[in-house]
Nucleic acid binder design. Structure first.
Lengths: 146, 146
DNA sequence: CAAAATCCCATGAGATACCATTAAGGTCCA
DNA sequence: TGGACCTTAATGGTATCTCATGGGATTTTG
């Protein structure tokens, strides 16, 4: 199955619209889907997306019984914030205001492929994260840990 | 089958009317239904709803859930308080006074999707719950439990 | 008949669809 | 090899429609 990979920076306009990078769109539309399933990351200041099919098994993970027994709280949290965002005629999606706020997006958004999913970051925030990640790797190599 | 997901805040007017979020309505009407089946949660200060079909074989729905009390007693309690609330021409339902009281609703209601069902909360109460849930998940991840 | 429940219509804001323009890359051909 | 041309992607703006909401009219019911 085709995967999400590569990094792309696109504009976020005043209406909250962003073009989904064409290669990512191809992955999703290649599965016959016309929308992106998106939710704020539980742990980072970014958004996570994929085709909706990626989230369909979430339903079975849900604390869906009639009892108060907690099941999968991660599934609960994701399901609560999950949104299905359809492509417009030009391959854009409209980001909900809360999503823009949670990920600190301004007028640009960086899409970064991660295999089965992708993330959307405020460009400078992602740059800082990548830099730190690279330094950790470099240090590990220097110490012979890798 | 389409699921309930996402979070939406709508107004409760003086007559006790609330608009059911359009995506939730679509799920229910997509099954050919024209009403919401709703009941107060047995365990939380909120209401739980779905299409009426979810409650038609209540006992079998609970078959895979552990609960401290016999299944049929839970079913009895839910059935006793279950109401079928039809959509008006604009997609609203009228919340019974007891339901509003039990869930502490004021002039706003938060709908939160949970897969096969959804819940209706007083906004600040739900916010507190979600915050606690996120903290538990974050702690679990930090400890490597997940 | 009075109170409450239901239906109906109006409206503004927000969401969606539609069209127009620019930018970038690639191809074909002389 | 240097363009002329074509295609796709991204972007900007405008028109249109849907949703959520409020208020009133009308019907039902006790």
């Amino acid at each position: 199955m085709k995967a999400f990979f590569g990094t792309f920076v696109n504009k976020v306009d005043a209406k909250g619209r962003v073009s989904v990078p064409a290669p990512f769109r191809a992955v999703i539309q290649g599965r016959g889907l016309q929308s992106v399933a998106l939710h704020p990351s539980l742990f980072d200041a970014c958004l996570e997306g994929a085709g909706f099919d990626r989230f369909e098994n979430l339903e079975s993970e849900m604390s869906d019984s009639f009892s108060p027994t907690p099941r999968n709280e991660i599934a609960d949290l994701i399901m609560a914030e999950l949104r299905e965002l359809p492509f417009d005629g030009e391959g854009r999606i409209v980001l909900p205001d809360e999503f823009i706020a949670k990920s600190n997006l301004k007028d640009q958004a960086t899409f970064i492929g991660q295999g089965r999913k992708f993330q959307i970051w405020e460009p400078t925030a992602l740059a800082a994260l990548m830099k730190a990640k690279l330094q950790r790797v470099a240090a590990a190599v220097k110490n012979g840990d890798a």
